[in-house]
Amino acid sequence: MPPARRRLPPEDRRRAILDAAVPLIAEKGLDVPTRELAARAGVTQPLLYRYFPAKAVLLEAVFERVYLNRLDPAWLEALRDRAVPLEHRLCRFYEAYTTAIFTPEWMRIFMWAGLAGEALNRRYLEQVGRDYLRPLLAEVAAEPGLREPVMEDLWNLHGSLVYLGIRRFIYRLPTPEDAREPIARAVARFLAGLRA
């Protein structure tokens, strides 16, 4: 006889379902059936639908947890602190950002969503561009001795650093455990390119 399922307060049950859904979606992709999601969470499918009336609602909650909840508004304040040299600000930002996103769940769900054509990726990238890269562009443009940067310059830097995580968590290739050195080299190359 299976053990009796214990009753949880609604917020705890919702959180438990998400706790089970995030690693399963990271492992199997966005097309994982809700029946399998419910089984992994230890609930019935009707109970899953009580908390998440549609799979899209569950995916939105996963997106919020895995992506939006990792972005820290304090990063922007630190990026704009011109008392700190630009190179240090860029390095600090990317050290914090990569620490937040270099997880199997973040990388794998991002890849699955991109392959599925989900709008979640576009929304996330639009937010990162608007909330971090555009302000960063303004900080770089204000730096004396650098040519006027364009947004593509920032996306190139950003993409090169995110690719460290893709190599580690998607391709399972060796990467430096400590990302600080590759970040410092990438930022130095970025700034040197703008001085040319």
Rank of each mutant, 00 (worst) to 15 (best):
R122D: 13
V162R: 12
L59V: 06
E181R: 13
N121K: 07
R122K: 14
F190H: 02
L76T: 14
R122A: 14
E177P: 02
F190Y: 11
G129I: 05
L115P: 02
I25T: 11
L30T: 14
L154S: 06
R147W: 02
D19C: 00
P23E: 07
P46A: 10
E60C: 00
R15A: 15
G129C: 07
W106S: 03
D72Y: 01
M151H: 03
A184T: 12
R123K: 11
L161Y: 02
R123I: 01
L24T: 06
R147T: 09
V43A: 02
L154D: 02
R70M: 03
R185V: 14
T34F: 08
R167P: 03
I109C: 00
R185G: 09
C91I: 15
P33W: 08
T99Q: 11
E148D: 12
A41F: 10
E36Y: 04
E77L: 11
E11I: 06
W155Y: 15
L173T: 02
A39Y: 05
D12Q: 15
A16M: 11
Y49K: 04
E36T: 13
A138E: 15
V128W: 06
L133I: 03
P33E: 11
A138V: 05
L48N: 05
R185W: 10
E139T: 03
P9L: 12
L24Q: 05
P85K: 10
F93R: 03
R5T: 15
Q45E: 15
P174N: 08
P2N: 10
V62D: 05
D19Q: 06
L37K: 00
H158S: 05
L37A: 01
I183S: 07
K55M: 09
A138R: 12
V187G: 01
I101F: 10
G159F: 12
F102R: 14
V32E: 12
I101V: 15
A38G: 04
G159P: 03
N156R: 13
W112S: 08
P9H: 13
D19R: 09
A192Y: 10
P23F: 09
L86D: 06
K28W: 09
A196Y: 09
P182F: 11
Y67W: 09
A138P: 05
G129K: 08
R108E: 13
R108H: 10
V66A: 06
R7K: 12
L79S: 02
V43E: 09
R180P: 06
R50K: 13
S160K: 03
I166A: 12
A188V: 04
A188M: 04
C91D: 08
I109Y: 01
P3R: 14
P104M: 02
T34I: 11
E105S: 13
Y163V: 10
K55F: 07
P10L: 11
A16R: 13
I109S: 01
E36F: 02
L191I: 04
R50H: 15
P33R: 04
A100G: 08
A4V: 12
T44V: 01
E118H: 14
Y124C: 05
A54E: 14
P174V: 05
E64R: 14
L48P: 04
A119W: 12
L18D: 06
V62L: 03
L79P: 03
S160A: 14
P176G: 05
V32K: 08
R195V: 05
L120P: 00
V187R: 07
P104Q: 10
A100R: 06
N121Y: 04
E95M: 01
E143Q: 15
L59N: 01
L18T: 09
P9K: 13
L86A: 02
W106E: 01
R14C: 00
L194T: 08
R80G: 04
W155P: 00
